[in-house]
């Protein structure tokens, strides 16, 4: 089919003098009487074998190239990216867990330090209190001892004084009696009288 004059060919008459002007320069070509498929390329059976042959070769080549080369290549790229992203997410998760653990450890250390500080403070206070108590107690005991000693001394002094008082009283009473009556009484009588007075 060299110069195709398809059945539905639209022919523009270039103002040829023979054509009727009323047709507005357009006419539809009437299909040739022997029109039998071959006028319409897609229905032209003669071209089918060669088209089929080349299509089979071309499509087989395409299929092989796609399934062996191109698609595995793209699949590898996508898989690598997928793996990489998964790895990165995992890594990020790991880092996050790590930082969380660190934060937790910090919290724990802080709490233990606080508890320790508290303990030290309590201990110090207790020690100091206990020390003060001991010192106070020893001081008290000391004082008590001193007090007791002082009391003993006072009692001794008092007894001594009392003994002195009797002697002085006996002497004074003898002197007084001597002065009054001019006679020295018997020392036993004076002593007896003084004792009775002291007791009275």
């Amino acid at each position: 089919m060299s110069e195709p004059h398809g059945p539905a060919a639209i022919i523009v008459a270039q103002a040829s003098p023979g054509t009727l002007p009323a047709a507005s320069g357009v006419e539809i070509a009437v299909p040739a009487a022997e029109a039998h498929g071959s006028n319409f390329p897609p229905f032209d059976v003669h071209t089918f074998p060669s088209q089929l042959l080349w299509l089979v070769i071309a499509f087989a080549a395409l299929y092989l190239l796609m399934s062996r080369v191109a698609l595995p290549r793209i699949a590898t790229i996508l898989e690598e990216r997928h793996d990489r992203i998964a790895d990165d997410i995992e890594e990020a998760g790991k880092l996050k867990a790590e930082s969380e653990a660190a934060a937790e450890a910090y919290e724990t250390a802080l709490a233990s330090a606080r508890a320790k500080a508290h303990g030290i403070a309590t201990e110090t206070r207790d020690t100091l209190a206990a020390e003060a108590e001991t010192r106070r107690k020893s001081l008290e005991a000391d004082l008590n001892v001193k007090l007791a000693a002082a009391e003993v001394q006072i009692a001794a002094t008092k007894t001594a004084a009392m003994a002195n008082v009797r002697g002085i009283a006996v002497e004074a009473a003898g002197t007084i009696v001597n002065t009054l009556i001019g006679a020295t009484p018997a020392p036993g009588a004076v002593e007896e009288a003084v004792d009775t007075a002291i007791k009275g």
Binding site: M1, H5, G6, A9, I10, I11, V12, P41, T47
Partner: peptide
């Protein structure tokens, strides 16, 4: 001057 809409499918 010929416009043939079928010509494009020519083998």
């Amino acid at each position: 001057s010929v416009i043939d809409p079928i010509h494009q499918f020519q083998i």
